[in-house]
Simulated scan of single mutants.
Amino acid sequence: MGRSESAQLVLASASPRRKELLQQIGVPFTVAPVDLDETPLPEESAAAYVERLALAKARACFAQLQEKKKVLGSDTTVHMDGKILGKPETEAESVEMLMQLSGQWHQVLTAIALVDGEQSQTCVVTTDVEFVTLTPEQCRAYWQTGEPRDKAGSYGIQGLGAVFVRQIRGSYSAVVGLPLAETAALLDNAGIQIWQ
């Protein structure tokens, strides 16, 4: 967890990856995850979806705080061929997602939202990712590692799933779950220093 002394910031996420990324840029913070329905709305674009969820997480967390602080919410999704690929619930769903991504380019969208009372700022970052060609056997073996279970698109670029990624165009940290350049800019705009 981030250092809590004099932390002006609360991270509205239970993601260990987001915690590590925020720690990486030296921001003191505390963690207060919220649980929301993450079902996309009918006809909702991937960008609108992640922005809505990041803002909803930050607002829900802010509403629960005893001591009012700034709250950072974030959400990541994988988008391909007009479809939002969420977190798989079964091995079959995981294999199906990974085989869709196999040998193809897809987009990873991560939204960040900073809420301070009635004030809010949001940003959506899109990164293009190309996969190597996969076999169903590789996908099943990957599912058995446990890693895909809580990952949008059924893979983690920072973990074992890194071997599936041929190349990326854009922000690596956004694919992991928190675009650091954009997060630092949002925090700076709100008067929160990095590298503390």
Rank of each mutant, 00 (worst) to 15 (best):
M1R: 14
G2I: 12
S4W: 11
L9G: 02
A12D: 07
S13R: 02
R18Q: 10
Q24K: 15
Q24C: 05
I25N: 14
G26R: 11
P28Y: 11
T30F: 10
V31N: 07
V31Y: 12
A32V: 13
L36N: 01
L36S: 02
L36H: 05
D37E: 14
E38K: 08
T39V: 10
P40F: 05
P42D: 11
E44L: 07
A46V: 04
A47Y: 00
A48S: 15
L53F: 13
K57G: 02
C61T: 09
C61W: 12
F62C: 08
A63T: 11
Q64M: 12
Q66G: 12
Q66M: 03
G73A: 07
S74E: 00
S74C: 14
T76R: 01
T76W: 00
M80R: 15
K83P: 00
G86L: 09
T90R: 06
T90V: 03
E91G: 01
A92E: 15
S94F: 13
M99W: 03
Q100Y: 00
Q107K: 13
E118L: 10
V125H: 05
V129W: 10
E130T: 09
V132M: 09
L134F: 02
P136A: 15
E137F: 11
W143V: 06
E147L: 08
S154K: 02
Y155D: 11
Y155G: 08
I157A: 06
L160D: 11
G161D: 10
F164I: 04
Q167W: 13
R169G: 04
R169S: 15
G170K: 09
S171Y: 08
S173F: 13
V175G: 07
G177L: 02
P179N: 09
A181D: 03
A181E: 10
E182G: 01
A184P: 00
A185T: 12
A185G: 06
N189P: 00
A190T: 07
G191D: 13
G191R: 06
I192Y: 01
I194Q: 12
